[in-house]
Design a protein around this nucleic acid. Structure first.
Lengths: 231, 231
DNA sequence: CTGTATCCGTGTTGATACTG
DNA sequence: CAGTATCAACACGGATACAG
């Protein structure tokens, strides 16, 4: 009889006992799926099912646990939409949204991984966040343009100005250019070096508006060279 | 009879099936302890036992698995030291060392966590990396100084110049200032607002050299305000 | 002395089925 | 649609025994 119930009460969760900030961050968001759930919320609130749909492989119970954990940590809040919708959504807190640099650092680092497989499924949010991460301000220079993106059901507008890019959900009407297609097709154009007209001819995407802008746009997000096997 | 043995052969490890760079990074270094092992190697190679000693709570078999995984991923290499030492050390590859921004982003974000507990144990490497992370270039201004740090058995020199800080292992001799004490004591001075003379009087640290520099040095690493509970 | 391999109790994860 | 229940597989952490 050496069991103590105290442990169960005091430490329901496994933690690194480490004052280092990175260790504490991993206590909060280091569990499997947690950062990817946050990623999917970076561009705005989502419902439980939206999250499930955009996270291939997560199971319902794990998503429930993660959302509860993130809510307890103050990273996410659960809200009810106004009467007509009546559905719950999950939304990042202001502090939760400040975690985007973590995703950017991870993404930039992984872009050099020799093992990265770009043919896997890609969520809409992933693609859009990658634009924020990979935009080269020097290449963007003084460009000022609005690029509409239709990704399946969802549409977004990317506003390129002052060497930075802002992305918001919204209708593509009035943009200088509108690209429509799957996230994978847009990624093939931007990161895969696929020619726009080839993709268009294959029916993978459509281009409306300033086609020269489209051609330039897809060159603004250069990938770093792969890290090779150590000598 | 719907079981397939194939799965066991093809996928010994659990992966997110996601083309997003962040997801791939988590495939590589998202397992428990992996990033903390990398953290401990950021300032130079270490032996198995050094790693175990500086990672409170990791068990030998888990450390073995992580090192094998990081080696397979090309993040870490295992080396033998020159004959006299004859011992193995683990060292980050160039690409592995480029993961430091991940740790910085995590640390910066967690610094605003309401739940952060700074009284937990702190490794020497954690403290030194936190200086790189939290240095405010504006506060450092045009300072140019060498600060020696004796943390238990290990000694390092921080070179402050041009609003940046470089840290290397090495003897403190010749530095403008030498601080000696535990990592926790130095952290109390820099991040905890503990007065240097109080800590010195308590025997927690010793100051040799330019005391005015010491007083200024500990103010160069401001912590961001805590994120509060959402309204 | 340095690391590795194995056993085991426990907690976490993930797939399926099911309920409000 | 939004989760909960159940259960099998796996990962973690501790102890211990083993190999160079």
């Amino acid at each position: 009889m050496k069991s103590e119930k105290i442990t169960k009460i005091q430490k329901p969760r496994r933690r690194y006992e480490d004052a280092c900030g990175a260790a504490h961050a991993l206590d909060l968001v280091g569990e499997r799926w947690a950062l990817l759930v946050m990623r999917e919320l970076m561009l705005g609130p989502k419902r439980f099912s939206d999250l499930r749909a955009s996270l291939p492989g997560i199971s319902a119970n794990v998503l429930t646990q993660r959302l509860a954990g993130l809510e307890a940590a103050g990273v996410v809040v659960r809200r009810r939409l106004a009467p007509p919708a009546a559905s719950r959504v999950y939304e990042l807190t202001a502090w939760g949204a400040e975690a985007e640099p973590i995703l950017q650092a991870l993404g930039r680092w992984a872009a050099r991984s020799p093992a990265h497989d770009p043919t896997l499924p890609l969520s809409n949010v992933s693609l859009l966040l990658s634009l924020r991460t990979m935009l080269d301000p020097h290449l963007a220079g003084a460009m000022d343009a609005r690029i509409g993106l239709r990704l399946g059901e969802e549409s977004y507008v990317a506003h390129l100005a002052g060497g930075r890019i802002e992305i918001a959900a919204g209708p593509v009407e009035g943009a200088d250019l509108a690209l429509a297609g799957t996230a994978a097709a847009i990624a093939a154009a931007i990161y895969g070096g696929q020619a726009l007209d080839v993709l268009e001819a294959a029916g993978a995407l459509t281009i409306e508006g300033d086609r020269a802008l489209a051609a330039r746009f897809v060159t603004l997000f250069p990938l770093p060279p792969k890290a090779d096997a150590p000598a």
